[in-house]
Design a protein around this nucleic acid. Sequence first.
DNA 1: TCATCTTACACCTTTGAACCGT
DNA 2: AACGGTTCAAAGGTGTAAGATG
Length: 470
Amino acid sequence: MQHVSADPYHQGNVRMTLEKSDLWKSFHNLATEMIITKHGRRMFPHCNISLSGLQPYANYVLMVDMVPVDNFRYRWNKGQWDMAGKAEPQLPCRTYVHPDSPALGSYWMKQSVSFLKLKLTNNTLDQHGHIILHSMHRYIPRFSVVQADSLYSVRWGHFHSFSFPETSFTAVTAYQNTKIAKLKIDHNPFAKGFKGENTRTHSKRCRSNKSLGNATKKAKQDKDPGNKSPPDLQRAKLDCEPEEQRIEIVVSDKEDLLSPWALKQDPSQSHSLHTELLELHDHRQDYSTEEQMVPGPASMSYQPYRSVEYGRLPSPSTIVEDGEGRRSYESHVPDVATVPGHETTRPVPVRDMGHPHHHHTLAPAMPQDYRVSPVHLPMSSKTYPGHLGYSYPLYSHYSTDQGMGQWAEGGTGQYSGPYFPHHLPFLTSQTLTADQGTPQRSVYHHGNITAEWSQNLSLDNEADLAIRSE
DNA sequence: TCATCTTACACCTTTGAACCGT
DNA sequence: AACGGTTCAAAGGTGTAAGATG
């Protein structure tokens, strides 16, 4: 198969559209909750996007990670979400790489891209590559498209990052809002067993009135329909992070952006703001990337964008809405290739991860600090038509107050060294797991061992592409 | 006591192998 | 032998209830 590398300086205008936007909005209007479990739970609705504006014969890697919306912990109280203090220290941020990555632009644009198999967990020691989240914290998925011929070269790619306000959610271990649970039952085919009140199981499960479950008890509290919004939600900072690591999120309550928190509290204010910005300013990075927040329909009269060209001015952008309610964001930012020469050549000690001053060692084109990003690779990255493949999430930044047990403990596939290869600030240290129950490819990326991994990856990708081209 | 988390469970869909007919 | 359709069992995705935990 012939690979044609696109001129990084003349990339097209990348546009991303959220599929099933209406469904997302339905959940968003009730304050979306996503169950997280020890062994990992899929999202519902799951992330499904479509892409355009890619170069058909250039390879791209698609990724998604979960960005904390703010720096608070929440609690469900009397039918509404209340702030319940400061957020827990940030966990090792994992990035889920779409199992088809890398693939040609034509492949990504041919059909919508599903992140169905992405799983969320609250298990900080998870080794299955699931995205680790804190319960009772709020997140928003961030999709990233980077032109790269392999995961190996992602580090040099130019990132286009997109977020959709209606996909924000609160991670929970059990549903707090029964309306959310009901909505999930209504739309998730796997939950059909819970449809209808007259089912055998339902009557069986309701046999005990004195032992009402969490959600049942909460249902009584739901009598109060007003989901009030913490006023501070409109502007919150991750001030638990060092200055350089702060993610600033500016959110207005225009339209339904975070509406369960804002509109229902005081509808009169729902249209008081005519700006809708959600900026994720990650000051840690000095790299070139674009991060774009797709606004709600009501915001069509203006041009909100979140194209954060770190160190550069944001560029013009266009909001596009099709007849089916899908919204997309088109990037007009001229891509600027980042070159390896921007990186430092000094290895970074593990203990310094998350240090406020480490950002100078960053690669120039990563949405987060991926210097210490152990990569999960499957035994094979092959995916077949009609079958979803494995995931090989990347791991991003740590902060100093995060437990490192996940990486520090010994054994197969465990990181054991204090340094990361200086020439691989992005793909580093290990392959922890493939899929559950799958034999692990354990490679510690030091020196020429890295080349071994690279070779394996390359071979897998070649085979993958060959299969797809058939 | 309370909020939150974990686990087991029944029910369901999805998946893929086996089987059959053409 | 190859292909396509059907069947069926296993695997795995759901929310709920009940108990555990801190």
